[in-house]
Amino acid sequence: MSSESTESVRPPAPSIPYRPAGRLEPWAPRFLTVFALVLMAITVALCAPVWMGAMSSDVLNAVTPLVMWLPTLVVVAVHLGFRRPVPVMRWAALGIRPAGRTFAVIGLLLAVMVLVPALTIAAAVSLGLVDFAPSEGAATTALMVVPMIVVMMVTTLGEEAAWRGYLQSTLAPLGFWRSTLAIAAYWSLWHLPVAAAYWTDGQMDGREVLVTSVNLLLSAVVLSAVRYLSGSVWPAVAGHAMLNTVLVFAYSNLITSTADLPDGAYWGYALVTWAVWGLAILVLARAVARRAG
């Protein structure tokens, strides 16, 4: 077969326009519905024993790396079941070309993930909501953050290849904001059964469940923005790993525990956090719009 004929039947690379660009592919609504229902059903089945008191939430902690691969496993299973005429690897944006842009966006995201907790802590401390109180081993722990980002990417790839990869490509005709918010909303919703399990087991209280859900919604917009900026899912993979390492390190080792705050200070701290995330979203969304021209 000639190179011309091979190229003519090869599915095009996914395009993710900033502005709405028409309707979804004919297969997309049914695909998305089946994906959403199957993923949520499996997640609820995993969490139900904890809700009923038949299993400790410690078991969920142990299987978290496997749970994080559920979205991509379900995407691949549904893709194969539907026999979709798009290549999984390209549709999930697993390439890194142009490599320079991909790594530049990862660097930009690292700066954002450092500035978000830095600005949040600075504002919260200045408002008297929390105290700046570095833990005894904070300096040593900080040295482990970058290696932990790399290790964590093995598990965050399992989520991001689906969320900011395959699903972002599938919803791309809706434009940046509609596709991003749809993914962010379901991503946050998908975490609720797990959060409810920790709440049932006494590991989280109701206010933590609510704040975590909003934080997920806001951080999801940032992760989608870097997919748009780079054209690759890898910055989102790295960014998700940074959420689980850089932010966890900062909030666990540099300030007093927010879980022990009275309601007034707790919600004040939450509002500061959301305001800083909002600022990050504005900056990155503006960069996405500028790149789109």
Results as ranks from 00 to 15, higher is better:
140 T>Q: 15
162 A>L: 08
87 P>A: 03
161 A>T: 02
244 N>P: 00
121 I>Q: 12
76 V>N: 03
127 L>H: 07
61 N>T: 08
167 L>F: 13
42 I>R: 08
30 R>T: 14
3 S>P: 13
81 G>L: 04
5 S>A: 15
51 W>T: 01
23 R>C: 07
118 A>M: 13
290 R>M: 05
166 Y>A: 01
138 A>T: 12
250 A>K: 00
285 A>F: 14
128 G>F: 03
79 H>F: 12
170 T>K: 09
259 A>L: 00
251 Y>S: 02
269 Y>Q: 06
146 V>Y: 07
85 P>Y: 10
224 S>R: 03
17 P>A: 04
132 F>D: 00
108 L>W: 14
170 T>D: 08
158 G>L: 04
240 H>Y: 02
155 T>E: 13
34 V>F: 11
254 L>V: 09
10 R>C: 13
58 D>F: 07
270 A>T: 02
136 E>Y: 06
95 G>C: 08
212 T>C: 11
239 G>A: 04
226 V>H: 05
157 L>D: 12
114 V>D: 04
182 A>S: 11
152 M>P: 00
94 L>Q: 12
208 E>G: 14
199 W>K: 08
59 V>W: 15
183 I>F: 13
95 G>L: 11
188 S>T: 03
213 S>Y: 14
237 V>Q: 02
83 R>Q: 11
60 L>E: 11
147 P>G: 04
101 R>Q: 14
255 I>F: 05
34 V>N: 01
288 V>E: 01
237 V>P: 00
263 D>W: 05
217 L>G: 13
229 L>V: 04
244 N>K: 01
34 V>D: 03
204 M>F: 15
199 W>Q: 14
6 T>H: 10
64 T>M: 15
186 Y>L: 12
31 F>S: 03
14 P>H: 12
64 T>S: 10
186 Y>P: 00
200 T>S: 14
108 L>P: 09
160 E>I: 05
20 P>M: 07
57 S>L: 00
22 G>M: 09
111 A>V: 14
132 F>T: 05
112 V>H: 05
232 S>Q: 09
119 L>F: 14
